[in-house]
């Protein structure tokens, strides 16, 4: 089973010197944090904040390539989590055929945001993510904590 998730924001995780993309389902019942590197966080942040860079960034180029041949991103699915590595699939529609491409969630999300495609997560991934401490930390976050990527 898959659940549609929304990208709620990005946070800096000083303990791991990494960024966390926070996904949340529509009912706000489930939350899925995904740790990503700085460049990946930058790619997601630009989309969230509707920043148009002077030159196409990597995921803008990625979308240009798909656009050039009218290939459409239908959806992306966060499929698995093992040893802190997340797996995702990008579902493409091209000439009436569907293609499924293996990707890192950070690339998949950066592309989904640029393509207005929905992001889903497998329920097994959401279930695996079961750190109460982390949940508590995330619950206590204020809106101001999100979306700052100025380092």
């Amino acid at each position: 089973m898959i659940t549609q998730m929304h990208v709620k924001g990005l946070m800096f995780d000083p303990y791991n010197n990494a960024y966390i993309v926070v996904l949340r389902d529509e009912e706000h019942a489930d939350m899925l944090p995904i740790w990503v590197g700085k460049p990946e966080a930058g790619a997601i942040s630009m989309s969230l904040e509707n920043v148009t860079p002077p030159r196409p960034m990597t995921h803008d180029f990625m979308k240009s390539l798909l656009d050039a041949y009218n290939a459409k991103v239908i959806s992306v699915v966060i499929t698995d989590l093992s040893e802190h590595t997340y797996f995702a699939k990008v579902h493409l529609m091209y000439e009436d055929s569907e293609y499924t491409v293996d990707a890192r969630p950070s690339d998949a999300i950066a592309l989904a945001l640029r393509s207005n495609a929905p992001v889903f997560a497998n329920s097994s991934v959401i279930a695996k993510q079961s750190s109460d401490e982390l949940d508590q930390w995330l619950e206590n976050l204020k809106p101001e904590d999100f979306g700052k990527l100025d380092s």
Binding site: T58, F61, V101
Partner: peptide
């Protein structure tokens, strides 16, 4: 790399779509 990096994904798209 254990997981495809961004440009590996671009290459993968190209391969899937025969570009």
């Amino acid at each position: 790399t254990p997981r495809p990096m961004s440009h590996d994904l671009i290459k993968s798209f190209a391969e899937h779509l025969d570009i």
